Amino acid sequence: MRLVTIDDVRAAEKAIEGFAVRTPLLHAAWAGDLWLKAENLQPVGAFKIRGAANALARLPEGAGVITHSSGNHGRALGYAAARRGVPCVVVVPDTAPAAKVAGIRDTGAEIIMVTPAERFSATERLTAERGLVLIPPYDHPDVIAGQGTVGLEILDQSSDVDTVLVPVGGGGLGSGVATAVKALAPTVRVIGVEPELAADAEESLRAGELIAWPQEKSYRTIADGVRTGLSELTFAHLKARLDDIVTVTEAEIRSATGELARRAKLVAEPTGALTTAAYLRYGSEWGRAAAVVSGGNLDPELLAELVTAS
């Protein structure tokens, strides 16, 4: 299995110009030596635009695309496809947050709602029926390379960073960031973060083999963006390049989401708050840490609940 290289990530950096923005690295002095990579400030509210735009750039002109997504990747692909003037279909599990579904719809993409169990089979069927090109959320080298540009920017913005923290769901972001960071700054640690209630990647990496969790188990977490498990491709990247992986509780995720809004003035969805939650729990071990705030797309009611919670 070929792993993505730093050359792939460098090429992606050029391919996504005009689609993704260079997000700031903000000092969260209230938490210590923590720096927040604010990917929630991307045009689609999440880092996913990087991988989606890079994968789309590799396709022939006019090729229509399809994906399956609980929200952020579908919105990113819909946005990039609209910019290129090509059709986009997004298969969405009916458990996806309403705000994320609305974000996909706003791009003009066609939405197909299915049960979580039908997510992959429906996508496969529609891909064949309509002659579309599948760009999955994470199980694709071009997507991984695009996400790796987050790592390039962090190293450029903070040459003395000790640790980079990334949320882990399907593993595309962690795979890409670890590829970039370990190639350019091998002594910098890259640590993945998962909810305790969706810790299939931690179990897999500890066991040395890919272990899948049933959907009803991983869907318990509030962090909807990391309810999906690793693929063989992302597992291979994380096994080779990730330094460690830790977990946080639901209470810690909720608290960190509120802290980011109140003290950093950043709207983060629970998945985007995973890395801050981990730093607040383990940060004394990590020196200067850059935490990827992966996205900020959440329902207003949930945001209000988490911001006002004590």
Score class of each variant (00 low, 15 high):
residue 213 W to K: 14
residue 198 A to N: 07
residue 203 E to K: 14
residue 213 W to Q: 06
residue 201 A to F: 07
residue 186 P to K: 08
residue 198 A to G: 08
residue 251 A to T: 11
residue 256 A to P: 09
residue 137 P to Q: 01
residue 259 E to Q: 15
residue 137 P to V: 04
residue 205 L to W: 01
residue 233 L to H: 13
residue 215 Q to A: 07
residue 191 I to A: 09
residue 250 E to W: 12
residue 261 A to I: 06
residue 174 G to E: 02
residue 262 R to V: 14
residue 260 L to S: 11
residue 174 G to Q: 02
residue 260 L to K: 12
residue 156 D to R: 15
residue 148 G to Y: 08
residue 153 E to H: 01
residue 216 E to C: 08
residue 210 L to I: 03
residue 205 L to D: 00
residue 196 E to F: 02
residue 184 L to N: 08
residue 253 I to A: 10
residue 231 S to F: 06
residue 241 R to G: 07
residue 191 I to Q: 06
residue 171 G to Y: 11
residue 141 P to K: 02
residue 181 V to L: 09
residue 215 Q to L: 15
residue 227 R to K: 14
residue 136 P to N: 07
residue 161 V to D: 05
residue 258 G to W: 13
residue 198 A to D: 05
residue 165 L to D: 08
residue 178 A to N: 05
residue 140 H to L: 00
residue 246 V to P: 09
residue 204 S to N: 07
residue 150 V to F: 00
residue 242 L to D: 06
residue 167 P to K: 05
residue 173 L to H: 03
residue 174 G to A: 11
residue 151 G to F: 11
residue 234 T to W: 03
residue 145 A to W: 05
residue 208 G to Q: 11
residue 157 Q to C: 05
residue 164 V to L: 09
residue 260 L to P: 13
residue 213 W to A: 13
residue 226 V to W: 01
residue 223 A to V: 13
residue 210 L to Y: 07
residue 215 Q to E: 10
residue 154 I to M: 11
residue 150 V to Q: 03
residue 244 D to E: 13
residue 256 A to T: 07
residue 216 E to Y: 12
residue 249 T to P: 11
residue 169 G to A: 10
residue 177 V to N: 03
residue 220 R to A: 13
residue 237 H to C: 04
residue 259 E to R: 15
residue 189 R to I: 09
residue 159 S to F: 04
residue 204 S to K: 13
residue 260 L to E: 10
residue 239 K to E: 14
residue 172 G to H: 03
residue 178 A to W: 06
residue 182 K to A: 05
residue 259 E to M: 14
residue 174 G to K: 04
residue 244 D to C: 02
residue 178 A to D: 04
